[in-house]
Design a binder for these strands. Sequence first.
DNA 1: AATGATGGGTGACGTATGTCAATATCATAT
DNA 2: ATATGATATTGACATACGTCACCCATCATT
Lengths: 335, 335
Amino acid sequence: MAKRAERNGVARHEGDATQFALDPVLTAAWLYYEEGLKQDEIAARFGISRATVFNLLQKARDEGAVSVSIDVARIGALRLAQRLCQATGVAECYIVPAIGNDRPVTERIGALGARVLERRITPQSVLGVAWGRTVMALSQTLAALHLPGTSIAQITGSAIGTYDFSPELCTSNIAVKVGGRCVNMLAPGIVSSADVKRLLMAEPIVAQHFALLRGCDITLFGVTDLGEGTSLMHSGFMTEPTLADYRAHGAVGFVSGYFFDKEGRPVLTDLDARHLSMPREDFLAVPTRICVGGGPSKIAAIAAMLRGGYANVLVTDETTARAVLATFDGRAGAI
Amino acid sequence: MAKRAERNGVARHEGDATQFALDPVLTAAWLYYEEGLKQDEIAARFGISRATVFNLLQKARDEGAVSVSIDVARIGALRLAQRLCQATGVAECYIVPAIGNDRPVTERIGALGARVLERRITPQSVLGVAWGRTVMALSQTLAALHLPGTSIAQITGSAIGTYDFSPELCTSNIAVKVGGRCVNMLAPGIVSSADVKRLLMAEPIVAQHFALLRGCDITLFGVTDLGEGTSLMHSGFMTEPTLADYRAHGAVGFVSGYFFDKEGRPVLTDLDARHLSMPREDFLAVPTRICVGGGPSKIAAIAAMLRGGYANVLVTDETTARAVLATFDGRAGAI
DNA sequence: AATGATGGGTGACGTATGTCAATATCATAT
DNA sequence: ATATGATATTGACATACGTCACCCATCATT
């Protein structure tokens, strides 16, 4: 159902000097949420039906004229989150409860990630965005901000073919919500040889892109394991032989272009020389690096990712958080 | 019964509640407001009564863990507000609907003023605060912010005797809500002679205070007319002869220490030489000057205040807004 | 051990809110 | 003008919410 923000019928009667001289949606929202009038009362005073008042309020919520927000700082202050911070050295950690609605856990984590991002992003932010199901979910639940001074830049190149959480989609989705400039990477994610990579990296347009990425103050990325269901394959971004090669070298996870082993150490194969992405040292120099992800299959990958210091802000779910904590501290399961 | 015993038994290990391994208040709030579970569902999943869930949610709201906020920018974008901006030259204008709950209009305006202030104040703000019923109302509805870097400074000195909206009360109330430093003026508002004023102004402590005020980025003040009911008298801040003197010189209103005539021009009497307040030119140099006030008796005072350029942000009510607009533009009443 | 005060938890009830299909109104094309 | 599709409004119904008096553990006092 499409919601359109428009002054409705009443504005047309302005000559009548009816009660709705001010915007009906906002007026209803103000009276209801700020002054505590009942829908009945509002309806009575304006001479309209209560159902209409309800509709006005609905519209106000849809348009974002009123919003309920939960204090994200308190979620970061939860015991489990604090424990995880201490054990892993990550700066901040946000956790969705194990019990919740029946949506996939990635969507639930995405929603919390969106709240975290809304808090962190500034009017001048350069936000580097990777891709993944969770990042995509985040982009969809992000509130409409109005930050025209921001740049939302794609961190990693794309593979051929579209899938429902491609780098371009994630980036542009977020840019739309944030109201910022969308900067896509104008190059393939993986090329045929190291020479081509060098050539491309030297192209002004591409070099400029990586220069922009160096100026990121925030990055946002998912994390994936290298098991059967990994979206690296599902998305067509990589093939089984390539993954097998990384696995053979000890890799257990992947974030934003980098493979790492269970201690978080870089794992490189010849692919890395053909893979266009933000240099690892640039990535690690970004002050706020938000990783969103969770689920049973990702536990080892997340633990390793944290050891590698890729993220300093983690958004995950309770079950995963406990499991990750357990790999750092045997007694942690009891908490 | 057996069920409860078991629950309590389990709960005792870890703080308070195991089903709520995370904080119950926050968890309930998250599930309800963010994930859209019904109170019933939350109750069922945690094995508690729905009434308890309701209580948890209530607590979350009381604690400010969740908050509903209405987009103040849109209130400023209302037609009437825009018209008023254009007609009067004020930069921003916010208007509460004529129809509302049965609280006094000052309280309703105060609530909107609070929302405006919450949006404008920054972590490093120096906020100059005058006094009045509306400013007091504003302070009471202000949300708890956590801005320890702010200073909330009293703009005008105080008279003897306490009343329920004294400068000290307004200032300290706001400082508590904002979480900032409260800086009261350590001098009487009105002294016996110009010499005493000069002497005091030269006192390091007092001079320091006025220096701080020069650094204000925001001021917040009410406006009063000089009629019978004016709080200048009611508060004991001034006496009828003093007011009569100002009236005789053409004064129609007062803000934050300054009298002005109906064109907004300064009106001075010998009192001004004995009145400790922020120098007018310093006041007018503050980038954001928020005036809160409304009601039938204040129409002329507000119009004059705007002509004098004292405020560049006005928060008032619809009825007053229309009346003020009419004094600037005859046709305005029709809008 | 008995007593009283405290406070969170609860069931049951009345009310406010949310839903939906039917109806009225408007904007545009014919 | 009139038809037509789109949108706004409504009454009636179903449900979720908020309130309140009561209950039962807990803890301090006698």
